[in-house]
Amino acid sequence: MEYEFAFGEILRDWDLLARGIRLTAALWVIAFVTALAAGLFLGIARMSPRRALNWPATAYIEIFRNTPVLVQLVWFYYAFPVLTGVQVSPFVAASLGLCLNTSAYCAEIYRAGLQSIVAGQWEAGRALGMSEATLMRRIILPQALRRMLPAFTNRAVELAKMTSIASVITVHELMHEARTMATQSFLPLETFTVVAAIYFILIYPGTLGALLLERRLATRGGAA
């Protein structure tokens, strides 16, 4: 192969890449934090015996889990404004789409985690006269969160990768900047290799963390 690598030229445009990384990180953090919060309420609603809560939560979760993220983002950017008359910026549309999608998955993690706590724990809390909120906060969540941690870490890693889809609706995150650079410099090989490496460096610690966490929880055997 006669190809001459020109990585230097790509790295000279570091400003552009740095801006991309910042936006990728912002998307990731905003979507994940809001999805963690929204997912808790969705997960609890999904478990509720009341149909008025349970049914909409189930519908929401299934819709977001069973349609492509790409379609969801495009829908929020191009279709949502037509429906509501509210034009949102690409960044807001992407945050919203990623948050809603991830919250559906988080809801299922919460549900599985909460249901893994044996009935005796709920009963012991209720028998002391705890309200459902106190029971959740003091007894159930502290035990369940420990079991959910590996699943949430995996979700965070998935989300970090999903942020690249936001480039489609012109969010100037890392992938979008890469495409701009690749077309301007005619160096797609170098550009996308560098970008892949950046994603790897950003995400791998998360994957590693998940693995370590899982191992530590396994050896502790869930006691105490």
Binding site: G120, Q121, E123, A124, A127, Q143, R146, A223, A224
Partner: peptide
């Protein structure tokens, strides 16, 4: 309770 149901954490 029969199974004690202490809070393990």
């Amino acid at each position: 309770f029969q199974q004690f149901n202490l809070f393990p954490h």
